[in-house]
């Protein structure tokens, strides 16, 4: 099933640029894929460990700024800067995670918001390096390329990054490491008592998540070409990411992608139809409320559960079975097979 859905996703990514009727739709596709990568990267922490981070927008902002500064200040080629920036953000995620992951639940959420606000202040005030409130202009990697072609190339780059993030999540989900992470999500103390090195696991997956988030942020910097600290270090970005993952289904491989498509398209629609009004905020807030009330596990898990209920599997009984019952049952099965 995951492989079939993956094949559908690959075909959709491959075909979308040719089917997009105009460059605006194509650029919207790039934005939606950016959201999809961010939400999938968030799902490494939120989905596996259950830690809800509203600070992932800041990690994307760090990736964007690091990429831009490595190009403008260190004269690195664009895509080398992108990779180096992701490595730097991953390294920075170690002390951040070391401090933040010591607390759980609501305390972790508050720490993650504090991260965004602190970085906003730093990047606004440190204008000699970051450009402050004037922002940072990032040189385009393909200077002579026309806009539609530029969007098409970045759409495929984002598509490749999304598939890489999904493949990594899928592999983790099947690994011993992933099993330990899921145990942390269920009951951290119990997981620790069974020998799972909980803190090391949380920190490792946080670093992996930060690296993918930084790659998405860096790619955005290369595509958009202009960074403003108010937008790069916004709690709203983290909130959208959480909404997307919740809507589609955390703990699910494709949940955040589905959520990113729904919310990302809705956000673009509201911008076009209603301009710079707070209506999109009201609508997304309403959507978040509805999701939490009616589909707390998200769309994909809710639909999967519905299908299972409709099928009414035979093995759904939870009747107590003793060893004697089972021996009798097996005897009957053997007799039926022999006759």
């Amino acid at each position: 099933m995951p492989l079939a859905a993956g094949a559908v996703l690959i075909v959709a990514i491959a075909m979308f640029p040719s089917l997009a009727p105009n460059p605006y739709i194509l650029s919207s596709g790039v934005i939606v894929l950016n959201w999809a990568v961010l939400a999938t990267a968030w799902n490494f922490v939120g989905g596996f460990t259950g830690y809800i981070s509203l600070g992932h927008g800041a990690l994307a902002g760090l990736g964007g700024y690091a990429t831009g500064l490595l190009i403008t200040k260190a004269d690195l080629p664009s895509f080398v800067a992108l990779i180096v920036a992701a490595v730097l953000v991953a390294a920075l995620a170690v002390p951040i995670g070391f401090a933040a992951l010591r607390v759980r639940g609501a305390s972790f959420v508050i720490v993650s918001i504090a991260l965004v606000l602190i970085l906003l202040l730093v990047f606004q005030s440190w204008s000699s390096v970051t450009g402050g409130s004037r922002g940072l202009v990032v040189p385009r990697p393909f200077p002579g390329m026309l806009r539609p072609e530029h969007h098409r190339v970045f759409f495929f780059l984002y598509g490749g990054l999304l598939l890489l993030a999904l493949a990594t999540w899928w592999l983790l989900d099947r690994s011993r490491f992933g099993m330990g992470l899921k145990a942390i999500r269920e009951d951290e103390d119990k997981a620790e008592s069974l020998g799972t090195p909980t803190f090391a696991y949380k920190l490792t997956v946080f670093v992996v998540s930060a690296a993918f988030t930084a790659l998405a942020g860096g790619l955005y910097a290369l595509w958009f070409g202009d960074l403003d600290p108010v937008f790069q270090f916004s709690v709203l970005t983290g909130s959208y990411i959480v909404l997307m993952a919740l809507l589609g289904g955390v703990r699910n491989l494709y949940g955040p992608v589905l959520g990113a498509i729904v919310v990302g398209v809705a956000l673009e629609y509201f911008k076009v139809e209603f301009g710079n009004t707070p209506l999109h905020l009201v609508t997304t807030g309403l959507l978040l409320g509805l999701v939490v009330m009616f589909m707390p596990d998200g769309v994909i898990p809710s639909l999967t559960a519905l299908v299972k209920r409709l099928r009414k599997r035979e093995d759904s009984s939870i009747r107590e079975v003793t060893a004697a019952d089972l021996a009798e049952q097996r005897k009957r099965e053997r007799e039926a097979a022999n006759s």
């Binding site: 011993r176 099993m179 330990g180 899921k182 145990a183 999500r185 269920e186 997981a191 069974l194 020998g195 799972t196 703990r251």
Partner: peptide
């Protein structure tokens, strides 16, 4: 939220 298999294998995590 984990399968019986995962629960049992977690017992042998070490």
């Amino acid at each position: 939220e984990m399968t019986v298999e995962e629960n049992v294998l977690l017992g042998g995590y070490t």
